[in-house]
Design a binder for these strands. Sequence first.
RNA 1: GCCCAGGUGGCGAAAUCGGUAGACGCAAGGGACUUAAAAUCCCUCGGCUUAUGCCGUGCCGGUUCGAGUCCGGCUCUGGGCACCA
Length: 822
Amino acid sequence: MSQSYDPQSLERSIQQRWQDSQVFRAPAKPGPNKFYALAMFPYPSGQLHMGHVRNYSIVDAIARYQRMLGKDVLHPMGWDAFGLPAENAALKNGVAPAQWTFANIEHMRAQLQRLGLSYDWSREITTCTPEYYRWEQWLFLQLWKKNLVYQKVSTVNWDPVDQTVLANEQVVDGRGWRSGALVERREINQWFLRISAYADELLAGLEGLEGQWPEQVLAMQRNWIGRSEGAEIQFPLADGSGSIKVFTTRPDTLLGVSYLALAPEHPICQQAAQHNAELAAFLERCKLGGVSEAVIETQEKLGAPLGLDVLHPLTGERLPVWAANFVLMSYGEGAVMSVPAHDQRDFEFARKYTLPIKVVITQDGEVPPAEALTAALTKPGILVHSGPFDGLDSESAKKRITEALAARGLGARRIQYRLRDWGISRQRYWGTPIPMIHCPQCGVLPVPERQLPVLLPTHYQLKDPRSPLLDDPEFLEVTCPQCGGPARRETDTMDTFVESSWYYARFTCPDAQAMLDERASHWLPVDQYVGGIEHAVLHLLYARFFHRLLRDCGLLPRQDSRFDEPFARLLTQGMVLKDGSKMSKSKGNTVDPQGIIDRYGADTARLFILFAAPPEQSLEWSDSAVEGAHRFLHRVWRLVHEYTPPVPPQPASLGDEARLLRRQIHQTIDRVSQNLAERQHFNVAIAACMELSNALAKASGRTQEQDLSAVLGEGLRTLVLLLAPFAPHLAEDCWQHLGEEGLVAQARWPQVDPAALAVDQISLVIQINGKLRERLEFPADAAPAKLQELVLQHPQMQRHLQNKTPAKVIVVPNRLINIVLP
RNA sequence: GCCCAGGUGGCGAAAUCGGUAGACGCAAGGGACUUAAAAUCCCUCGGCUUAUGCCGUGCCGGUUCGAGUCCGGCUCUGGGCACCA
């Protein structure tokens, strides 16, 4: 037996063996049993944090397990390398974003390698390299041809002091984070991807993910897409100058409308403000603050009358029009019909500005006077005060009222989505240049494909937040591809979500001389995707969208349902907490993974993080529990190294103790397999390994008994295999000690021997009226009726029964018997 | 404000389909070994003045022979809200 468990040198030498043998390299074309395991790739912030360790330990355990099942496994890693932090770092430290980013990648790659994750590093992708982003530009041009890209004016956060657009994150309490200036909303022309054209398909696709994706993620995506059925309704302007269109899901309440509310940016508001100083001041006030929905929805609800009326489309009644700061220009028509009696927000607004409230729906036939209402009556019911529609229920009224509107040409049934088109323009430097050209003669034109990539210059020293592309003639000045005259290059770059929307596909063919090649269809879809729950909507929805774009651009097979979705199975992991809150530098509660690895080794870090909680739950960091994980690994190391191989052959019959131990070994295989494959509760799988290790340790003192020694050998060999996905370095070392040939990383996962699981006695719980009273042993093969008889006659039961006749006896096979006494 | 989760011993958790609440680990206490310490090993470990008893899974109520698990209401904590990634 060698000295003792020394994770640092042990892990280094095992990692060397893995590297020498290239075991984790995936073939270009896998056999019929392929498995693509993917973790959400990191932003190279410079330091590995515990969230990364958790994410990658989970995927690595899955990848290693699948490899031991004999599959061809693709398990790649790369860098989501464009984004805001590089610019911030550049401003702070005077390092060019590219330089900063690549230095961070070097450092973090070394950290990942030290963790011993089973990546195929030959497929590494870095999104800020032209080799990667040129295909994104290429795709953009294809989408332009398909009319899936367009320009439109939309709202951004504007910092009037720094003269720059701010990310929502950079708006703190309505002020710019650097300047402290009050942030304004500003309208600028931007590039959009028409994701709304895929709304129905993205919604329908969720059904196929049922059972494979967490229910909560499916629910969040459904709500985000937000399909709603309703009607669009025209309200003619009283002065005859046109009409205002609204969308509503409640046309049944149309006779209860008392005013219209318009988004401040609505053209009719803007028009009305030209001769209305008070309104203009109000609209100006509405411009203050950020653009995020959370800000808009939580601010005080304010409004101002436009001083013009519309006509009710059915009754012709005059209704006032208001501007309201909570109406979103980006949803529906930017205008809503307000029914205060039956919508809570309208109700509060009407009370605040003393606007009329008309009850038109009743639950029980009672019609309370408007003054008596304390809240809106939002449930559907029966119509009242609605003229010819009185007495209809809400559902049929929706239909009838919409028909009545359609007959007058003032309305129609409509399906509305909450999902908006994806604005991908960023007025930033560190991103993929949008490959378009603005020519004063010819207008907006795409960069010709042969001129791709449009290279992002990397030499700038940033002095202020303004994009240096705006001031660089070398970048800006181009020749118009159409007229040959002087033109200006587009300076907006793409949202970094674009890079992360297709990287999973590029990993299958990272050196392809096209965006993707046939290798994509060999490996896709990703069989298991793992990442933080914070990506439940945006990233995962955008990637699902891109998957369809790739397919529709002919890069993925069309007629094969295997390629419907990019991620066949999804696991969303919880956060790593310290003292109950998220680890962050500002809170000063971070734990550096590097320190843990230096002190205890990678196996301990990985084992702890998998053991501390089930993956989807948040994980509370604990230094002493890390010690515990380390102690366990040390115990396993000693247990294995104290055993002297070779394992003797097992005798034909085993003694009671040996048989019991062997049963536990095979029960453990069963539990660990289930908790790795279906349930993915790695903490439970590891707990089962600990129990097995405890049982083996008890037997280890008695190796002179031949049957026990043989079963112990089988147990140790099994334990090492079962631990290989969690503590791979230790497992390799122990595997070697047990005299096994080759790498445990390539060994076969153990199989359950059903014969070892057989039992002849079972322990049953006996309840009286649902309360636990006895635990009794019975033959395993007794029929339920026989069991019931045995229990009722059992001497230990008589004092519980007290000569009463049971009213009912419930027998749950192999578990319990509940006797209901009168 | 809207959407989605979660709440179980001193702590992290387990209980897979409505069927033994607390597996496994941490911490703590006691003991063995040691000149001593560390390491290691063994025992105890939800609460209640006795234990074949009663109570106990955020709070209030319901369904059921039986509820941590299902239903209704509340509360607190966390994630997302379209330019952080």
